[in-house]
Structure formats: C-alpha cells, structure tokens
Amino acid sequence: MENEAIEQASAGWSWFVSNSMNVLYAIAIIVVALFLAKLAKRFIVQIANSKPSLDDTLFEFLGSLVFYIILVFAGLMVLERFGITTTSLVALIGAAGLAIGLALQGTLSNLAAGVMLLLFRPFKVGDFIDGAGVFGKVDAISLFTTDLVTFDNQQIIIPNSELWGTKLINHSHFEDRGVDLTFGVSYGTDLKKAEKAIRKVLSAHDKVLETPEPFIAVDKLNDSSVDFLVRPFCKGEHYFDLRYSLPQLVKEEFDRQKIEIPFPHRKVIMAK
C-alpha cells in the first residue's frame, strides 16, 4: 500500500510538472504571438503613414488581418501542445469559412473591390467621377462602399464592386481639362468672322488657359447650320464655370456682330 501511494504521488507530481510546463509554454506562445502581431500591425500601418499616396484605411485593415492571423496560428500551437489534434479543427474552420463566404458572397465581392480601389487608387476623395451610372464628387471611400455627392446635394452610396467592375471616368485625374462646346451659325455667315468672334470671347475669359491653345474648327455641316467645335482648356476646378458661362457669352458676342444663329426650320411649298 505504501508503494502504491508513492507511485500515485509520483504520477501526480509528473502530471503536474508536465502540465505546468505546458501552461508556461502556452503563456510564452501567447505573449510572443501578441508581441509579433502588434509589431506586424504597427509595421504595416507605418508603411501607409510613411507614404501619403497610400491609403490609411486599407493598411489599417491589412494590419488587423495580419494581427488576427498570427493569433490564430498561436492558438493552434497551444492546442497542439496540450495534445489536442487540430487537423479536424482546421477542417471545421475551413468549412465554416467556406459557408460564410458563400453566404456573404456579395459582401466579400465589395470588400475585394474596395481593396483594389484603395490599392490602385483610380480616384481619391474630392475627385469628380462618372461610374455605375452616377456622376458626382467622391465624399468617402471605405472597404465596402464609395459615397458620392451629386450637384443637387444628394448622397449616393455605391457598392465598390459596381465601380471596380465597370467603366469609370475620373474627370479630376488631370489638372487641365478641355471643355467641348458646339456653336452653330447660318450658311450665309462669314466663317472667319464667326471664328474671330469666338476667339475674342475665349481670350477675354479669365478661366481659359492660353496653353494649351483653344481649339476652334468647323465640325459639321448640318441641314440649317455650320457647326463649330470649340474646345478651350481650363483648370479642372473651373470646368463647369466655362461649361455654363461660355454659351451665353458667345451668344451675346454673335448678337453684337450680327452673326445669325440658325434654328431648325422647314420649307413648305404649296402646290396649286
């Protein structure tokens, strides 16, 4: 009986020592994993902070993703240390991840598109864009949606997948913009006189750039008019100033110089 008690005490002590080492090992793994996870996240965020061209939102997300991945691997190592087989657990997590991915397919598609938009930056906050059938000013870019503000002061929230997967026009990408306008004159008009009148209006406008030089040329010979294509250049922020002020100024100049602006008409011949 005495020997049996000694053997039980020895086995209990061995179990305590073994599990104590496992507990210490697990604590060490968790501490090291937390340190490495925070270090990795801080490193990724600092990459974005060091380069203004990179988006902070994307790198905050990537930093958090790396942080939790390191912690998951640390948890699996702790379970292995205590003799728990993690193969089935990993398979279960994978199956659960697949089911969640299928259920959130649309959301994940927007997330992937958001990462691509923030990484390649086809537009930024403050740009005027035309995408997904909407034109407006970019107010905010998140991982899932992009917020636009229209000219009539409406907020439009667009899923990122719709912007990334379709044609997108960024009207603010280049500093200088060309403004395409069409002005029609009658067939009896002296074309050189009309061109001179248009150039006079453009040269007097303070928002029209001298370089690149404005483009003026006859574009079409319509049924009742000769159409000029006029393309002055301006800074991007002045685009709409020119777009909506030049037609009136050209009309007023044509009136002063007695240049006729034709309107559609139809000639009817009555048979006797």
Rank of each mutant, 00 (worst) to 15 (best):
A194Y: 10
E210Q: 14
V230R: 03
E162T: 08
E175K: 11
K200P: 00
L181E: 10
L181A: 13
S203E: 13
T211G: 03
D227H: 04
S186D: 15
V218Q: 11
D223A: 14
L209G: 09
F215I: 15
T211S: 13
T146H: 03
E213V: 15
H205M: 14
D206S: 14
K235N: 14
I157W: 05
D139T: 04
L209M: 15
H173Y: 14
K207W: 06
D139E: 11
G178S: 11
I156H: 07
D147V: 05
L143A: 09
I158G: 04
E237W: 14
R231G: 09
G184F: 12
F215N: 13
S203A: 15
N170F: 05
G165A: 05
I141A: 01
A194G: 05
P212M: 05
L191T: 09
F174V: 10
V201I: 10
G178M: 11
H173E: 14
Q154Y: 04
S224Q: 05
R243D: 13
R231F: 02
A194L: 08
I156Q: 10
D152A: 01
D227Q: 06
F240K: 03
K207T: 08
G184M: 11
I157S: 13
K235F: 15
D227G: 01
S172T: 13
D223P: 02
N160D: 05
D147G: 00
I141S: 00
S203V: 10
N153G: 01
F144Q: 04
N160H: 04
N153F: 11
L191G: 03
N160R: 01
V208P: 06
L202G: 01
R231L: 04
R231D: 07
K200F: 06
I157A: 09
F174T: 13
W164P: 00
I169D: 09
E237M: 14
L242I: 11
T150P: 04
L148F: 10
N153L: 10
E237I: 13
I158E: 02
S225K: 04
V208M: 11
L163I: 08
K192S: 11
F233K: 06
V226A: 05
R177Y: 02
K193F: 07
L181Q: 14
D176G: 00
A204Y: 13
H205E: 15
P212E: 05
P159I: 09
D219M: 07
T146R: 00
A217Y: 11
K193G: 00
K220T: 12
A217D: 15
T166L: 02
D176E: 10
K235V: 08
T145L: 12
T189Q: 04
K167I: 01
K167W: 00
T166D: 02
D147E: 05
K207M: 09
S186G: 11
E175I: 12
E237C: 11
D180F: 07
P214G: 10
D227A: 06
E175S: 07
D176R: 12
S203D: 13
D241C: 06
E175L: 14
H238R: 08
A217H: 13
G165V: 01
F183R: 03
I156N: 09
L242P: 06
Q155K: 14
L191I: 15
Y187I: 06
I141H: 00
L143K: 08
R177E: 09
H171Q: 13
E213R: 15
D180Q: 13
H238G: 03
S225N: 07
K196W: 06
D147A: 04
F174N: 12
L163R: 00
L168V: 08
D152S: 02
C234V: 13
